[in-house]
Structures are given as C-alpha cells and as structure tokens.
Design a protein around this nucleic acid. Sequence first.
DNA 1: TATTGTTATACTCTATAACTATA
DNA 2: TATAGTTATAGAGTATAACAATA
Lengths: 159, 159
Amino acid sequence: MDMEARGHSEHPQALRLWLRMLTLTQLVEKQVRSQLRERFETTLPRFDLMAQLERNPDGLKMNELSRRMMVTGGNVTGITDQLVAEGLVERVEVSGDRRAYRVRLTPRGRSLFGEMAHQHEGWIVSAFEGLSPEEVQALHQLLGKVKQHYKDTPLETAA
Amino acid sequence: MDMEARGHSEHPQALRLWLRMLTLTQLVEKQVRSQLRERFETTLPRFDLMAQLERNPDGLKMNELSRRMMVTGGNVTGITDQLVAEGLVERVEVSGDRRAYRVRLTPRGRSLFGEMAHQHEGWIVSAFEGLSPEEVQALHQLLGKVKQHYKDTPLETAA
DNA sequence: TATTGTTATACTCTATAACTATA
DNA sequence: TATAGTTATAGAGTATAACAATA
C-alpha cells in the first residue's frame, strides 16, 4: 500500500534493526538455554510453561497454555506430560467441563521454579546491564509500540 | 558482584524488557518462517546462509559461515548440501589449502535470493511500520549498545 | 456440530563427537 | 599436532492431522 511514496531510505533501516534484534535475541536465548540445561537439566519451553503457571496460581487450561506459549496443542501435552512425570505440575479437573483440565504447579514445582527464576533473572539483568534504567525503560516502550502495531496488523497478505 | 547494592527495582524491568523482546522476535520470526515456506519452500537457516553469501560475493569458507550463522560446522554442511543440490550455491576450491572450500551463490541462487530478499524486506518493513524513522533509529542504537556490552562480557559464570 | 485435549507422525534444526584429509 | 570439513547420531522443538470424549 503506497510503499513507493515512502521513499526507499527507511526500508534498509528497518531491516538492519530486525537483523540486530534477531541476532541479539538469539545470543541471549542461546545462553539461557545452555544455562537452563547445565544447571537445572531443563529446557526453555519447559521453563516457559512453568513461568506461565507461576503467574496463574489457579492453573491454566491446555488451550490457554497453547495460546500463551505460541505453540500448538500437541506440544503442550508433551511438555506437560514430562513435568507431570517429574512431579512439578499437576492436572486438575475442571468442574462443569469434563473435557478440560487446569494445569498448575505443585508445591515442589513452585519451589524449583523459584530457584530457576532467580538465576534466570540474574542472566537477564547481566545481559542488559550495558543500559541505564532510563534506556531500559525507553527500549521497553519502543518495543511495546512495535508489538502493539504488529498485533493490530497481523497478516500482510498483500506483498 | 555487588548485586545487592544496585537495589531491586531495576531487575524486574530488565526481565520485562527481555520477555517483550523475546515475544516480539518470536512473533516476527514465526511469520517470516511461514512466509518463506509458503512462497519459496525454504527455511530461515537456508535464507540466512544465502544472505551471508550475498554480502560476500567471493564466497565464504565453511568455518566462516559457521561462525556468522552461530551454529556448529556439521549443520552448515547439511544446509550447504541441500542448496548445492538445488543449484543455488556452489563449493569452490581454495588455492593453497586443499582442505578448504569457499561457498558462493550461483547466478541462479543470486537471482532467487534477490526475489526472496525483496519480499522479506517487505515483511520486515511492515512489522516495524508502527515506528517513525527516528524511533527505528533509536531502537537500533539501543540494541547496539546492549549487543556491544553483551559481547564484551560473554559469560557470567558467577551467578 | 463444535470444542478440548491426546496421539501419531514427520521434518527441521541443533549440538556432540568420531572421522578423513590436509597443513 | 592442529585445522577444515564431513559424517553419524541423538534429541529438542515444531506443525499437521486424525482421533476420542464431551459439550
């Protein structure tokens, strides 16, 4: 839609921005994955699932987990099965709908997640310690603006 | 190292920033992957390898590709094999070292990559079109600062 | 009929480590 | 010995689609 009228000069800028953001994210993510594995013998999706439950003490249904983790349902089943087998989460019946479960942390899961989250926070803080608190704030706000617009305009089917 | 003296309030900010950046990156990345598959029947690592070669017309050695793509050597061999089989890249002997190759785009690979890169740029531009050029610039600069510091301080082994 | 969740499957990407050939 | 690259393997992560049970 009227791409021509914009002039060309800003396009490569967006591209450079994206490449930098992608590289940086991969760098941090790679370190987080490796630390999670080394120190806790776990993975990022498993950590992510537990983090979602930590924020929702009453538990979440499978389809809510699926949406929040941005993966399809079958995968959530698999990750949940592993965590159940280790006694870190549990499936609770939902009264009034016998198809659905709520998944929630067990006490042991909550305790272990507390340790992991504490360390994780340290890795992240050190990743961003090159920025002042004001810069962290500015970055957070700018990314929020991108995300906001992006979610409002989900698919550019015309291209 | 002296985490206590920093005060606690800024830590959750860095964490929130990271979660937002990770989510946004995954969102864009997921769309790029899906478009690359739908329109060009290719994948992000393959696109990435070709992009590296586009920037280096004389080609790159396998270990240089490995470093730039941030994956181990065996994987580069596999991706390169696929692209060679499709006639998009070629292995060229390095005079003076019979162990090494340079990998470079074929004319057909260069042409196809041109099309892909053009579309890809469109997806990225639309992902960031919620920002003004000045904001794009600011974001780029802030991320550069993070990356710079991060690379100078590679591993927080103490935590 | 639609929805919730599971199962089965296949494929890509990845790291690790053993290996070959050359330096 | 060290380096460049390959091969073999195993595992994580993912999507798709068929399926069962319930709404």
